[in-house]
């Protein structure tokens, strides 16, 4: 993955966050405080403004850290620190690199997920973004261990994230504002898991058909 491909991925996520603003907010209105799509879109629009002015660099780590810091300062709520931490940890893992191998990418995403879990103290099955990101990382690592090409591994990662997202529907939330609803949170798809699927899907779509590294 080159710097420009990483940049394409961020822009693709911003586009999908904008396109799904109402959808994410509707999911959030069922079990949260009805602002997830609005907040993610506001944050990613700010990210676009920031990365347009980032200047000459090929440091993917610096790019991802800029995304993280921008989300931290613009999203608010719980999503700001969680997505901010995801990108900051990915940026630390990719620091100084102008090219990420498939293994580098998998390691960065795993570091991002670990950061999200540390920050939010959520486990798999708590009905959070962790439920989409964990299977995404697992599928990615399994695909690479099988010798899959980068683009194929990203596709399988996105499919696993989608499965994890759908699996949040029957779950009872144990973290965040949705947890106050107890049993009433069951039957609704988690908005954070949904935006996390969109993030992984944007990576797969950006790389679709491109030569794997």
């Amino acid at each position: 993955m080159s710097y420009s491909q990483a940049d394409d991925w961020i822009r693709a996520f911003a586009a999908t966050a904008a396109a799904n603003k109402v959808y994410l907010t509707e999911l959030d209105s069922a079990i949260g405080d009805a602002d997830h799509g609005i907040n993610m879109n506001r944050g990613m629009q700010a990210v676009l403004g920031k990365i347009d002015g980032i200047g000459e660099t090929d440091d993917i780590g610096a790019l991802l850290k800029t995304v993280g810091m921008t989300l931290v300062s613009t999203v608010g709520g719980a999503s700001g620190p969680l997505y901010g931490t995801l990108f900051l940890r990915m940026g630390t893992a990719a620091a100084g690199k102008s090219e990420l191998s498939a293994d580098d990418w998998a390691a960065a995403l795993a570091a991002g997920l670990a950061g999200v879990q540390t920050r939010g103290k959520a486990e798999l099955g708590d009905k959070t973004m962790v439920d989409a990101l964990t299977p995404a990382v697992d599928a990615l690592q399994a695909a690479l261990a099988d010798g899959a090409a980068f683009d194929d591994a990203l596709r399988r990662s996105a499919e696993a994230a989608e499965g994890g997202m759908k699996a949040t529907i029957p779950l009872v939330a144990r973290k965040g504002r949705a947890s106050y609803l107890g049993e009433r949170s069951a039957g609704h798809q988690d908005p954070g898991a949904t935006s996390s699927w969109l993030l992984v899907l944007a990576a797969a779509d950006t790389f679709a058909g491109q030569a794997g590294q």
């Binding site: 931290v72 608010g76 709520g77 719980a78 700001g80 620190p81 969680l82 901010g84 931490t85 920050r119 939010g120 973290k175 965040g176 504002r177």
Partner: peptide
């Protein structure tokens, strides 16, 4: 103690 407040203050 609200998740958003707690996480933002932690950061």
């Amino acid at each position: 103690n609200y998740t958003g407040d707690v996480l933002n203050f932690e950061m």
